[in-house]
Amino acid sequence: MRTSRSGNTPELLKDLRTLKAAVFHPQDNDGESLTRQLQRIGCQTQAYWPPPQELPEAVDVVFLAVNPESIRLDLPWTRAETAPTLVAVVNYENPTVVDGMLKLGASAVLAAPIRSFGVLSALVLARQVSGELRRERKRVEKLESKLRSMRQVADAKQILMKTRDISEEAAYSIMRDQAMAKRVPVEEIAVAIVNANEILSASGPKPRK
């Protein structure tokens, strides 16, 4: 007897029915197979060719035929911060197409001729990869901004310590009191101090950036 657990249904699979998909592919056998399979899976699917400059509203995932024709196009939405998940549909594997696929930021690839088998896996994998990438990017941004403000607080403390000849604790407590009085974050006070110092002592030592 084997006692084991069949997996729970992945959340990504459960979300498929609310997913808006756009197929940017010529209207041929592959384009139609792909569109119909996405409809079977239950995504709200629309198909266009050539790829439009502007995305239809609220598209979550784009299946884009990466071919000599589409590589030439400049598609601003592929670079946007809120770019949808992109799955490249290819029927060449030459360096030009591979390069185009990389530049577009594809998260998965479907090889033409399209079979219904494989579309679901590519879709779910792409959603997973692009979702993780987006979350990681946000985390990095947050950390970078946190790091920046920590540096600024440190710089501001240094300035206060030097100009007033006080201890680090005293410098910080001045900034904190100011922040409380003005009801702004300490980081903002720090930026003000650093900026003022740059102006007042244009010839003095440059604070760290």
Binding site: M1, R2, T3, S4, R5, S6, G7, N8, T9
Partner: peptide, 25 residues
């Protein structure tokens, strides 16, 4: 059976139910 059980588990849990065991022969 494995796929069928996955579906049954989802359905039972939707009802606030519990899966006591899952075994295969």
């Amino acid at each position: 059976p494995v796929e069928s059980n996955r579906i049954m588990k989802d359905l039972v849990r939707q009802r606030g139910g519990t899966i006591l065991a899952e075994c295969y022969l």
